[in-house]
């Protein structure tokens, strides 16, 4: 289990916190989705968890052992897929994987099989500098699996991929979970989080605003929501109201009384909408 307690991070040491007082834990064999708009601090948290950034405040423990006390062997259990695909451009896809496989003390997977799994078989022996961004991203994803890690950290693994390829990656992630892997998944994409995660946490401006299973979040915030289309000075506007919220309830009844309503649909709120309600901003 990975446990994070009261994590804060200040890059420049000027009291300007990129991440503030973040706590959560990820039980073994589950997928934890870390969601938030750009600049929320998602990558910062991931980088602290994998030791790329120093732990300034708070505590991070892996099965009870602080990250401060981990040695080089710790990395044998870790797989990391980076936000910006970082591969050796002068090495082929195959060579990139082969090289990294050689760095671990634990048994590693067959590079060619991994490349096949992410649809890179044909490009396996081409230099990575000739790969498209999406191909490089798949290569980095494949690389994160090379040492059969117990803990997988995936920073935006599907961003910028076409739906088919993204589906392949998601399938692999679910398979890894079945194998008992604990997964920390960072993403903008609420749909991805919804499909994959056991728990999601919303991060906004460095702070956690909600954390629960997607289903519970929807139950809590989405059960009694209605989407309303209404006329406003000749334009048609659309808005979602969460009727359990006093404020929303009041606005909704006002709207009903104004008789400007054109259509009403009850609906299950998406994670995206819930995030908007919680933070007053979108995810983009």
């Amino acid at each position: 289990m990975l446990a994070v307690k009261n994590l804060s991070h200040d890059y420049e040491g000027k009291g300007n916190y990129a991440v503030r007082n973040v706590s959560f834990s990820i039980p073994e064999g589950t997928i934890f989705g870390f969601l938030g708009p750009s600049g929320a601090g998602k990558s910062t948290v991931q980088n602290i968890l994998i030791g790329l950034l120093p732990l300034q405040q708070g505590e991070v423990t892996y099965t009870g052992k602080s990250i401060r006390d981990q040695d080089a062997k710790f990395f044998n259990q870790l797989g990391v897929s980076f936000e910006h695909p970082n591969v050796y451009g002068r090495l082929t896809g195959y060579e990139n994987l082969k090289y990294f496989a050689g760095l671990f003390d634990v048994p590693t997977l067959d590079p060619l099989k991994l490349l096949e799994a992410v649809n890179l078989t044909e490009a396996a022996h081409r230099k990575a500098s000739a790969y498209s961004k999406g191909m490089r991203q798949r290569l980095v994803f494949a690389r994160s699996l090379i040492n059969n890690p117990k803990m997988l950290f995936l920073d935006e693994p599907t961003s910028g991929l076409d739906p088919n390829t993204a589906a392949i990656i998601k399938e692999i992630i679910l398979q890894k979970k079945k194998d008992g892997c604990t997964i920390f998944l960072t993403t903008h994409s609420m749909a991805t989080a919804d499909d994959l995660c056991d728990t999601v946490a919303f991060l906004n401006e460095g702070k956690m605003v909600a954390m629960d299973s997607p289903r519970n979040l929807k139950l809590a915030y989405g059960e009694r929501s209605v989407r309303v289309e209404y006329g406003d000075n000749g334009r048609v506007l659309e808005q979602v109201f969460f009727l359990d919220k006093a404020e929303d309830h009041r606005l909704f009844t006002d709207l009903v009384q104004s008789q400007r309503i054109q259509t009403i649909h009850t609906q299950e709120a998406t994670l995206e909408q819930i995030f908007m309600r919680l933070t007053g901003r979108g995810l983009a």
Partner: peptide, 10 residues
């Protein structure tokens, strides 16, 4: 930035 990848290996 391959050094970053190297850093999360032993």
């Amino acid at each position: 930035a391959t050094l970053r990848a190297y850093r999360v290996t032993p």
